[in-house]
């Protein structure tokens, strides 16, 4: 893909080309402040229900209980 040329750029990661290196890089950039999103390994993930972008239907993390979930927070920019 033409986007492969942007592997070293934050935005190419956000476009789903390669998540790994950007996660490592962003982990060193982002500063977590009290009350900020900070999921802890071994703890329950915070519950949420949000609208789906295609039809606005409510989707919650809880509805996937019983399944393994890969949660990806991103933006198209």
């Amino acid at each position: 893909m033409q986007l492969m040329g942007r592997l070293n750029h934050f935005r190419s990661i956000g476009r789903g080309i390669s998540w790994f290196s950007t996660i490592v890089l962003l982990a060193s950039v982002a500063t977590v402040v009290a009350d900020d999103y900070a999921p802890q390994v071994g703890s329950s993930h915070v519950a949420f229900t949000l609208p789906a972008i295609d039809d606005g239907r409510p989707v919650s993390l809880a509805q996937f209980r019983g399944k393994k979930v890969l949660l990806i927070q991103f933006a198209s920019w």
Partner: peptide, 14 residues
């Protein structure tokens, strides 16, 4: 506070 963030959550929500 940042994106992207990828989290692996098990079948119990952990």
């Amino acid at each position: 506070t940042a994106v992207p963030i990828i989290i692996a959550i098990d079948e119990h929500g952990i």
